[in-house]
Design a protein around this nucleic acid. Structure first.
Lengths: 225, 225
DNA sequence: TACTTCTGACGACATCTGTCGTCAAATACT
DNA sequence: AGTATTTGACGACAGATGTCGTCAGAAGTA
């Protein structure tokens, strides 16, 4: 006699009974979080290229079956981990800015932003994943990466624009300048990582401030001429 | 009867007879150049991670035996290609600076430097290898990479120092600032690459100039206070 | 011409990795 | 209690890759 087909084939948003006191969704989410955590650990410690599905699963203490269900492949997990870290940084930057909007000058505003940023970078796993691991993995990753970079560049230029709303600069040049700025922070961070975290948080923030205020001074000078 | 041992076991600086009208050294050098060229082609087109010993050898139209003799492994070739490209850029920057030393102001000096740099980047293979491919491959590559970065950062800060020889800034902070600067150029270049080379050379140079002059203005302001 | 060295093509081997299937035990449902 | 689902461990398989050895033919040398 032929067994009847199982009623539950795909595990997307399908129902699924409870197990170990948790719903299907809750278990899926739990595992997803375990993988994200393990991904941050592996990618941040060994790098994406030295990580494997097996190593991530070992770290997550889960079987590869769930891995493939949840992320498809390593690249999927990498993007997910990166996105989570970057969104977190974005949120913290937003908080830092919001906290100082009323009447604060650009100087303290920027300083708070840099402090938030370099604070997030103190977790070297996050720093490595956000600054180093995504670029060059694949064209899709590059697009994903540059999307975030663009967001941050826009954020910076918007901040600069609060000083003088009408900079004499085209959108293209503004984007490039913002990009350059983000790249500067990236390089400072990776250098700091490479040196084993020798420089202090203050020094890093100061470097960021110098570049930020420098750009603003430059644009101010261009307005005057 | 046992054959006598070959007199030529290692191929370092050992003798070797002529072949096809060329000395041993000349043939070795010729092959080395073919591999360097092929490496630039493969790494610059497909990226290091998508290149293999086989693909490089196919591109070079040489057998893997010579590859292993000359470079040991792919990473060896990558470093060699990177070093060659970076040395070339260094040389061109040196020329650009030398050409304008007598009495020229910092503005034109910097502009010439940026023009030389972004001109070199017009070859997207060079741009990709120099900006993207080395970082994160291995700890040794990272050290190699940061050595060059440090050189460039020093070069920039030395240039900035010609405006005012005594900046009130520590060596550590100077290094970080220079690094940030280099990172800015890196990010601008990779963004430009990602966009398919949309922005013009002028726009790129202008962005570099803005950042450079900005930093100088900032340091000037710090001196005055 | 006979012998040695150099060259290029080719295959062999081990390893790593992604990916999937199987199976028994744990858990839930009826 | 008996059946169905979920879970985790494990092995299998194919493909890619680094690496090395062999072998026949080309090029030089005595």
């Amino acid at each position: 006699m032929i067994k009847r087909l199982t009623t539950c084939c795909n595990s997307d948003t399908e129902h699924g009974r409870n197990y170990a006191g948790q719903s299907q969704q809750a278990r899926d989410e739990q595992r997803r979080q375990q993988f994200l955590q393990a991904g941050l650990e592996c990618f941040g410690r060994d790098g994406f290229r030295n990580s494997t599905v097996r190593s991530v699963c070992r770290e997550a203490q889960l079987t590869d079956r769930y891995f493939y269900r949840a992320f498809g492949n390593l690249e999927g997990l990498l993007k997910a981990v990166y996105g989570q870290c970057m969104d977190d940084i974005k949120r913290q930057l937003g908080l830092a800015f919001q906290q100082a909007i009323p009447g604060g000058d650009i100087d303290t505003l920027a300083r708070q932003g840099f402090t938030a940023f370099f604070n997030a970078m103190q977790d070297t796993r996050v720093a490595r994943v956000c600054m180093l691991e995504l670029e060059g993995v694949s064209p899709e990753c590059d697009v994903y990466y540059h999307g975030y970079m663009r967001d941050f560049a826009d954020m910076v230029m918007q901040l600069a624009r609060t000083v003088h709303p009408h900079w004499p600069i085209s959108n293209e040049e503004s984007a490039l300048l913002g990009m350059g700025f983000i790249g500067a922070m990236r390089q400072v961070t990776t250098y700091w990582l490479q040196q084993g975290g020798r420089a202090s948080l203050d020094t890093l923030v100061n470097t960021g401030m110098r570049m930020m205020m420098g750009v603003i001074r430059q644009l101010e000078a261009e307005v005057k001429n």
